[in-house]
Simulated assay, not measured.
Amino acid sequence: MTGLVSRFALVAVLALAACDDKPTAKPAPASTVQKAQTPIVAAPPVSAASSPVGQAINAAAFDPAATDPRARRDVLIRVQTLLDRAHFSPGVIDGRDGGNLTLAIRAFQKAHDMTVDGEVSQALLDALLATDGGPVLVDYTISQSDVAGPFMPPIPKEDYEAMAREPAMNYHDVVEMLAERFHMGEDLLRDLNPGVNFNQVGATIMVTAAGADRLDAKVDRIEIDKALGQVRAFDESGAQLAVYPATVGSTERPAPSGEWAVRTLAPRPTYTYDPSRLTFGEPKAKLTIQAGPNNPVGSTWIDLTKDTYGIHGTPDPKLVNKRASHGCVRLTNWDASELGSAVKKGAKVIFIGVEARPA
């Protein structure tokens, strides 16, 4: 992301965030960035999971007659991880069925000239494996830097005064940090590693070999489907680069319509709560919330030429496309980072469809 920051992100003195509610976001000062954990995802480990459970998931096949929930979970972990690596994001990899997984499957099927039904099948798994046959679970050794923090206590999402007292909006604990790094649900991370002390340096755990958060080309056009809750990224030739699940506005606070453009990028944005411009929260004074993955707009803010609107991350990845937003476009932190790392200044942003989700 450094190239993008030097190229156009830091020229933004002020980027407006959270849309209809009009708080503000801007690139964090250098002193704050040093205190805030960096949410950028490192390249995944390369050694396949050594445990029998990991080996079974790495070899999981689709069985339409299977009645064991664990067998279904294993196939879903494999499918979700392969979709993630192919840039058809299912959102959080959790081993569960859901709307975001269905959207990702349908997008993959359409792109590969398959029957578009959104269903998990052996044909889908075979098509995914034809593009990427690597293991989906790998071993990872917890390091000193993983457990060092700093971490912050959980804060209710509407307690802006408490957030503003924090020096940085860091992860709450090692589990949350590692789950986000590997695009996983925290429950799945714990379930795959029963009895593990995640604060023990040198402990070996199983994690998903998720995507590396890099696209193959620069993003020239972004299409935001308000009805589906989906963001699609294209290069200048019109080739589709990535598909992401997204929370896009609500019926009461809709996102914009029509064509706009990317104005600037704010990696690790701060967030300003301004009661004179907001329709939620109780604080009476203006507050600044520092950068970090648990910032209200997450780890990345992509500012649009439509004033006060943007595409951004979230501290609650499991809620993407499951709850309404105040008009902006909310992605998981890792998807927002991936999109931000490749988007061009001036890239077209086209909103289509109509929101179906109430506030």
Rank of each mutant, 00 (worst) to 15 (best):
M1E: 13
R7G: 08
A12M: 10
D20Q: 13
K22D: 04
A25S: 12
P27F: 00
A28K: 08
A30W: 06
Q34S: 13
K35I: 05
A36H: 01
Q37W: 04
I40E: 11
I40Q: 11
P44C: 10
A49S: 14
S50L: 10
S50T: 15
V53Q: 12
A56Y: 02
N58D: 15
A60Q: 03
P64D: 07
P64E: 05
A65Y: 06
A66N: 11
D68E: 12
D74L: 03
L76P: 04
R78Y: 01
Q80C: 03
T81H: 05
L82F: 03
R85S: 11
A86S: 15
F88N: 02
S89D: 06
N100L: 05
T102R: 12
T102P: 02
R106E: 15
R106W: 01
F108P: 01
Q109V: 01
K110A: 14
M114W: 01
V120M: 02
Q122F: 01
A123T: 13
A127P: 01
L129N: 15
T131L: 10
G134H: 03
V138T: 12
Y140G: 10
S145M: 07
V147I: 15
P154W: 02
E158S: 14
P167N: 04
N170K: 08
D173R: 07
V174D: 10
V175C: 06
A179F: 06
F182E: 11
H183E: 11
G185C: 09
E186I: 11
N193Y: 04
P194G: 09
P194K: 08
V196F: 05
N197A: 12
N197G: 07
A203P: 03
I205R: 10
L215C: 11
A217R: 12
D220Q: 09
R221M: 09
I222Y: 04
K226F: 00
L228E: 15
G229H: 06
A233W: 05
E236G: 02
E236V: 13
E236Q: 14
Q240I: 05
A242Y: 04
V243R: 03
V243H: 03
V243E: 07
A246Q: 08
V248N: 01
P254H: 04
P254L: 06
P256G: 02
P256I: 02
S257N: 12
A261V: 03
V262R: 01
P267E: 02
T279G: 12
E282Y: 05
P283K: 12
A285N: 13
A285S: 14
A285D: 14
A285R: 14
Q290P: 07
N295Y: 05
G298E: 07
S299H: 08
W301E: 13
D303S: 13
D303L: 00
T305H: 06
T305F: 03
D307A: 12
I311W: 05
H312F: 07
G313N: 03
G313C: 04
T314M: 07
T314Q: 07
K318Q: 12
L319I: 02
V320K: 00
A324G: 13
V329R: 00
R330M: 09
R330H: 08
N333D: 14
S337P: 00
E338K: 13
S341C: 06
V343N: 11
V343H: 09
K345M: 10
G346Y: 04
G346V: 06
A347G: 09
A347K: 04
V349N: 09
F351P: 00
I352G: 06
I352V: 15
G353E: 02
V354K: 15
V354Y: 02
R357A: 08
